[in-house]
Amino acid sequence: MSKLILQVRTKDNLLELLAASESRAWVVAADKINQITHVQIVNFDGTQMIEGIFDRNDSYRSSENKLVIKFLDGRIVNCRVQFDAQNPVRYFT
């Protein structure tokens, strides 16, 4: 299985997300869920992110059909990520 990273951009506090091992709630394509292996939750400035392993078993859809992203082995790292579009959700290998 190849690696597929789900990257999202958030205004939420990364330390709080790391403590909860989750970030909610995102519009994620249903056909991508079984392919996602890792997550990157990037702060709004694009200077830090949580990297983790996607927890497919505990992630779930909210009542608005948005995905609550659960992750394992999360850690905060410094980064330089630029979002050039309005959509805060991206996928890459």
Rank of each mutant, 00 (worst) to 15 (best):
M1R: 08
M1Y: 05
S2L: 07
L4F: 12
I5K: 09
I5Q: 06
I5V: 15
L6N: 02
L6E: 06
R9I: 09
T10A: 09
T10P: 11
K11I: 05
D12Q: 13
D12Y: 10
D12L: 13
N13L: 01
N13R: 12
N13E: 08
N13S: 11
L14K: 05
L15E: 15
E16D: 15
L17W: 01
L17C: 07
L17M: 10
L17V: 00
L18K: 07
A19G: 11
A19R: 14
A20D: 14
A20N: 10
A20G: 07
S21M: 07
E22H: 11
E22C: 12
E22F: 02
A25E: 12
A25N: 08
A25S: 15
V27K: 11
V28H: 04
V28N: 03
A30F: 02
A30E: 13
A30K: 13
A30M: 04
K32Q: 14
K32W: 08
I33K: 11
I33A: 01
N34Y: 03
N34T: 03
Q35P: 00
I36E: 05
I36A: 04
I36R: 10
T37C: 07
H38I: 02
H38C: 04
H38W: 00
V39A: 08
V39I: 12
Q40W: 02
I41Y: 05
I41C: 04
I41T: 09
I41A: 06
I41M: 04
I41R: 01
I41V: 15
N43P: 00
N43C: 05
F44D: 13
D45P: 01
G46T: 04
G46Y: 05
G46W: 03
G46E: 06
G46A: 01
Q48M: 13
M49Q: 14
M49L: 13
M49K: 15
M49N: 05
M49S: 09
I50L: 08
E51M: 08
E51W: 00
G52M: 05
I53S: 04
I53G: 00
I53T: 09
F54P: 02
F54I: 12
D55W: 10
N57D: 12
N57R: 04
D58S: 13
D58N: 13
S59K: 06
Y60C: 07
R61K: 14
R61Q: 12
S62M: 04
S62N: 14
S63D: 05
N65A: 07
N65Q: 08
K66M: 04
K66R: 15
K66T: 13
V68T: 11
V68L: 12
I69P: 11
K70G: 03
L72Y: 10
L72G: 01
D73H: 12
D73M: 09
G74N: 03
R75Q: 14
I76H: 03
N78C: 01
R80W: 08
Q82V: 14
D84F: 12
A85M: 08
Q86E: 10
N87V: 05
N87K: 12
N87D: 12
R90K: 13
R90E: 09
Y91S: 10
F92I: 01
F92S: 11
T93R: 15
T93H: 09
T93G: 12
